[in-house]
Design a protein around this nucleic acid. Structure first.
Length: 162
DNA sequence: GCCAACGTTGGC
DNA sequence: GCCAACGTTGGC
């Protein structure tokens, strides 16, 4: 695992959980992810201090609305053990958890939301996962140059934390 | 609301 | 292990 800070994009339907919700709560467990690729990214590569682009999907227009941050280390998603949860997984055990999550915190809301349309129309983002046709991954890595370019589009100064 | 793209399930 | 059927995601 790299020590360097990693960058990510998390998708959420704002009617389910929005950036405003995160802002109010300050932090939340990003649980309920039930896709193996997404799980592997969270379990294997996410670490404390990683930065997150917060994306609103299934809304008009779809857009990146702000930033969050990974808090602490990944851990087994508690909802997989909860019989009452819609995310309950009968095949998961505490010894052998199948799903993982991270805690994320609110960082900022962009002055200017960055529309998917904008990214799609820019050659700079043509190799970004988000702009690929049929890309449905809800937890995806973002190249640092893409991340920084999105911040600029969002009207945000890049904060140097190195 | 439509539907393309993708992931998962289960019969064989 | 193949693949058809089915369910979901998510832009449009």
């Amino acid at each position: 695992m790299s020590k360097k800070r990693n960058y990510w994009l998390l998708k959420s339907e704002p009617t389910t959980y929005s950036l405003a919700n995160l802002k109010n709560e300050e932090k939340t467990a990003w649980s309920g992810v039930r896709n193996y690729q997404a799980r592997n990214f969270m379990r294997d590569d996410m670490k404390n201090g990683d930065r997150i682009l917060f994306y609103h999907s299934n809304t008009n227009p779809p857009r990146i609305v702000g930033e969050g941050e990974v808090v602490g280390a990944p851990y087994p998603d508690p909802t997989q053990f909860n019989v009452k949860s819609t995310y309950y997984d009968p095949k998961a055990t505490k010894k052998n958890p199948r799903w993982f999550c991270v805690t994320i915190s609110f960082a900022k809301e962009f002055k200017k939301p960055v529309l998917l349309k904008t990214l799609k129309s820019s050659a700079r983002f043509s190799d970004m996962l988000l702009t690929q046709k049929g890309s449905r991954l809800s937890v995806q890595p973002v190249a640092s140059h893409h991340y920084k370019a999105v911040l600029r589009l969002g009207g945000e100064e890049e904060i140097d934390r190195t």
